[in-house]
Amino acid sequence: MAIDINQGKDVSAAHRVDWTPYLAGAGIGVLSWVVFVVVANPIGVTTAFSQLAAGAALPILGTDAVAQNPYWQRHPLRLDYGTLFLVGIFLGALASAVASRTWRIEHVPSVWRERFGPSIAKRYAGAFLGGALALYGARLANGCTSGNGISQGLQLAVVGWTFLVVMFASGLATTWLLFRTTTR
C-alpha cells in the first residue's frame, strides 16, 4: 500500500510500483478468456444472488408468491452454474485469506470508524442499507461491478460503460457528502 511505500527507509522502495492490483486485474482478465471459451458464461454475481434470495423470500412472501413471481420464474432458486460460482468465490477468498494469514473478524473498518465512530450497530445499519441499495441498483442496471462493469465492459457494451461511468460518479458524490468532514 502507498502508506507502506512512503514509510520505507530504502529510497529505491519509494519508487517501486506495487504490481499486485495489476496482476490481480490481469488474472481476472485471463479468467474471462477461460470462462468465455470453456463454459460460455461470463463472470457475474448478482443474478445468482437474486436466485438465492428467492430462498430467503419463501418464509417472508410465501411459496405461492415466490413461485408466481415473474422475475424468479426467469431466474429460479436452484444450484446452477451461477450459484455455484458464488460458492466458489466464497471458498477462494477464504482460502486466500487463510493462506496469507490475513483472515480476521472485522466489525467496524478503520475508515468507517474514523468518520462514524466505533458503534457496531451503526456500521451494521449502514452495511445493511448499502447492501440493499447496491443489489437493487445492480439488478435495475442489468448487472454489478463484475457482471456489468467488467464482463460487459470488456465486450465494449454500452450497458457496461454507462454503468461504470455513472456508478463511479455516484460513488464520488456519495463519498464527498459522507466523508468530507474527515478530509484533511
Partner: peptide
C-alpha cells in the same frame, strides 16, 4: 434503467463498502 441502477449502486457501494462480488468474498475473510 442502467443510469438509475448505477446511480443507486454507487450510493450503495460506498455505504456498504463492497460490491456484491467483493461483499461475498469479504464475508469469507471474516
Amino acid at each position: 434503467a442502467v443510469v438509475l441502477g448505477a446511480a443507486l449502486f454507487g450510493v450503495g457501494m460506498v455505504v456498504y463498502g463492497y460490491c456484491p462480488g467483493t461483499g461475498v468474498a469479504a464475508v469469507a475473510t471474516g
